[in-house]
Design a protein around this nucleic acid. Structure first.
Lengths: 182, 182
DNA sequence: AGAGCCATGTAAAAAGTTACATGATTCG
DNA sequence: CGAATCATGTAACTTTTTACATGGCTCT
C-alpha cells in the first residue's frame, strides 16, 4: 500500500525538507501513528524521486556537507491528494504483545501476573504523562486557531493518542483490581 | 522477536492442534491482538519442529487426507514460559493509516473531512457491535469461572478490544462535532 | 579536542502479504 | 453433485528492522 510513500509526500507537501528533517518528523510528530527508520526512508526518497513525485536541490551546510532539500512536484501533489481522499476499509487490529501475553495468563502465577500488570501500568502512565506534557504546550490550544490550520490535525491525533493511553490504563487498573480480589 | 513463534507455542501448549486449527484460532480468537496468514504459519511450524519445540503425529481424516497434529515438547514449554515471564518495554505505538490521514486534514475540504470521519465512524460502530455480540455470548461471564481459568485471558483481552473501539468512536464523535461547528 | 548532533547512505535479515497451487471431506 | 470447508504447502514480493559505514558541523 506504500503508506510510507504518502506519509513522506504529505510532509514534503507542507514544506520542503531533507531526509534528516523527515526523520525528525517521524520520530517526534508522527510517532503516535507512523514511523520509519532512516534505512527505510532514504531508499524511499530515491524511489519517489525516480517516480517524479519529488525533486531535490543540493544545499551546502557549512563548507562541504551536502544535504538534499526535497520538494513535492505537481505529480506528487496529485498522488498525495488522491491517496488522502480515498476511503479505506478498517485495517486489521494492531498487534499487541502485551495483550497476547495476557491472553495466556493462565500459564502464569498470580504473582507474575500482577508483576506484569504493574510494570505495564508504570510504562503506560509514563507515556501518558509525556503525551499530556506535549499537549500542554501544544500551539493549537494556545493560539486562536481554526480547524483548517495544519495545527488542527496535529492536535486531534495527539488527543486521540492521549485517549488511547488513558483507556489502556483504565483497562490495566480494572484487571489488577479483579485479579487482586481473586 | 519471533512473536509468532510464541503465539503458536502458547496455543499448542493449551491443546494439540493442526495448522488449520491454529489458523482458526488466529482468525477468530486472537485476531484483536495477533494474527498471521497460513503462508506464514506453515513454514513457522516447520521451523519450530526443526528446533525441537513442537512435534507432530500424522492423523488420517477420512480415507486419504493427512493432517499433522502438533503437540508441544518439554523444550517448547520452557521456551514459552520464559517468553511469557519476560517483561517487555513498550512497543512503538501501532501504525494507523486513518490517524495519518487525519494528521494531513488541512489538505482536505470540510466536506471530504466529514465524509472520512462519518465513514470511519460507521466502520468502527459495526466493529464494536461485533465485539459486543461476542462478549454477550462469552462463556467466562456466563459460567462460574475464576481468573485462573484459560477463559479469563480470553475475556479480558476481549474487554480491552471493546474499550479500545469505544474510545476510538468517542474520539471520532468529538472531532465530528468540533469540525461541524467550525 | 571532544561530545552531540547533522547528514546520508547500503547490506542483510526478518516479518508479513499476496498470489499460486493442489487435493480431500462433509453435508445438504 | 456442488458448495463450503478442511488441509497443507511454496513463490514472489513488500515492508520493516538491525547492523554496518562514513563523514561534517557546532559549540564548549
Amino acid at each position: 500500500m506504500r503508506t510510507l510513500k504518502y506519509a513522506i509526500l504529505g510532509l514534503i507537501n507542507r514544506e520542503a525538507m531533507t531526509g534528516y528533517d523527515l526523520m525528525k518528523m517521524f520520530n517526534l510528530e508522527l510517532v503516535n501513528f507512523w514511523y520509519a527508520q532512516h534505512s527505510q526512508l532514504y531508499p524511499e526518497l530515491k524511489k519517489l524521486t525516480d517516480e517524479g513525485l519529488i525533486t531535490y536541490e543540493t544545499v551546502l551546510q557549512g563548507q562541504k556537507l551536502e544535504k538534499k532539500l526535497y520538494s513535492i512536484t505537481e505529480a506528487g501533489k496529485i498522488a498525495f491528494l488522491n491517496w488522502l481522499k480515498k476511503q479505506d476499509l478498517l485495517e486489521p487490529t494492531p498487534k499487541d504483545i502485551f495483550r497476547l501475553k495476557v491472553f495466556f495468563i493462565e500459564s502464569m502465577t498470580k504473582e507474575d501476573i500482577l508483576k506484569h500488570f504493574s510494570y505495564q501500568l508504570d510504562l503506560r502512565k509514563e507515556k501518558l504523562e509525556r503525551l499530556e506534557a506535549t499537549m500542554a504546550q501544544h500551539p493549537y490550544s494556545k493560539t486562536i486557531s481554526d480547524v483548517f490550520s495544519p495545527l488542527y490535525g496535529d492536535y486531534i491525533v495527539l488527543k486521540s493518542a492521549i485517549m488511547r493511553e488513558r483507556t489502556y490504563i483504565d483497562w490495566l487498573l480494572d484487571c489488577i483490581k479483579e485479579i487482586e480480589n481473586s
